[in-house]
């Protein structure tokens, strides 16, 4: 009985589809696509509204001071997000400074310089890096990288910069534990390389061979080809790739929590421990109550806005480059 009715409805639909006109089907297709798009926007708006409502008590209590304040005192219920915002931005910037040249190097090597038999294994290896769970980066960072970083970078650099103006502040650590903002930035760099490198590689590979060959034909060196022909061609897409990496660096939680040292204090040195918005939420959310919970949600809201601003700036940058 059940099977029979299903067959019937199938036949119905089949004959029905011939009845519905082309424009009708088009309209259905359009509606489906539109509702998918609206769903994403609705979820996005829902998250933003929920976070804003959740964070409202903190915003109301501290006002603009919440953005600039640097206290995080659960004892007296005083909260300010600035150290976490600064930590988020500085780790992301360090990650980009290290990660972007590395990724572009990989992409150029894979598309221009590497012999054919090297390309596929290396490209696969880079893509596999993207599939490593972030907690593994965190564990590796804490157990392997942190002791090495303390011994071979933090201690010698701190000894060297002690007492010097500016670098003596930015690159000096009173207790060189290996944990800190710089460590987190380096681990993040490893994590965003696969994203930027594989997109940049795809973009470079898509550039018409004619362009490259003509450049070589007029006597350009490999460097000149990469610098003056390939990178300008792929420029817009590469900026897009970098922004994708930046997005990951801003929001990364687990790996950063392991290696940043989790200090809710503002420090002037990148070798000192700090915290990011995401790591602070990961650390404190479980046990937070009342205003502290609200302050955490409010920092989440700020991270949302920071990411949004970064994306808008990236869009504007891409648009300007296209116009040129």
């Amino acid at each position: 009985m059940a099977a029979g009715s299903e067959a019937l409805s199938y036949a119905d639909r089949k004959s029905g589809s011939q009845v519905i006109s082309l424009t009708g089907r088009n309209a259905i297709f359009r509606a489906l696509c539109l509702s998918s798009a609206i769903l994403v926007l609705a979820v996005l708006a829902g998250i933003l509204i929920a976070m804003f409502i959740g964070g409202w008590p903190a915003f109301r209590e501290f006002g603009l001071g919440f953005f600039t304040g640097s206290a995080w005192d659960t004892q007296n219920d005083q909260y300010g997000a600035w150290p976490a915002i600064a930590g988020t931005l500085s780790t992301a910037v360090i990650a980009l400074i290290i990660g972007v040249p590395l990724s572009l190097g990989i992409a150029v090597f894979l598309t221009q310089l590497a012999p054919g038999w090297v390309r596929t294994p290396v490209a696969t290896a880079v893509e596999l890096l993207a599939a490593v769970p972030s907690i593994i980066y965190g564990m590796w960072g804490l157990f392997v990288f942190v002791p090495l970083f303390a011994r071979f970078f933090q201690v010698p650099v701190s000894n060297l910069t002690e007492g010097l103006p500016i670098v003596g502040t930015i690159l000096y650590s009173r207790s060189p534990t290996g944990l800190g903002v710089a460590t987190a930035g380096i681990i993040l760099a490893f994590m965003i390389v696969p994203f930027i490198a594989s997109i940049a590689r795809d973009m470079l590979a898509q550039i018409p061979t004619v362009l490259r060959e003509s450049a070589y034909g007029i006597g350009c060196t490999t460097w000149e080809v990469v610098r003056y022909v390939l990178l300008p061609q792929a420029g817009v897409s590469i900026i897009g790739a970098i922004m994708l990496g930046l997005g990951r660096a801003l929001g990364e939680t687990m790996a950063v929590t392991f290696v940043i040292g989790n200090a809710n204090r503002l420090s002037s040195s990148i070798l000192d421990p700090g915290s990011t918005i995401a790591s602070r939420i990961a650390n404190e959310f479980n046990e937070a109550l009342g205003l502290q919970m609200s302050a955490l949600i409010a920092t989440g809201c700020i991270l949302f806005l920071v990411t949004f601003v970064v994306l808008v700036v990236a869009r504007l940058l891409v648009a300007r480059m296209k116009a040129l």
């Binding site: 005192d73 534990t177 944990l179 040292g261 650390n283 046990e287």
Partner: peptide, 12 residues
């Protein structure tokens, strides 16, 4: 359960 530590590093 969490305080403002004057110095040190935090482990989760």
């Amino acid at each position: 359960t969490s305080v403002s530590w004057p110095i040190g590093v935090g482990g989760k």
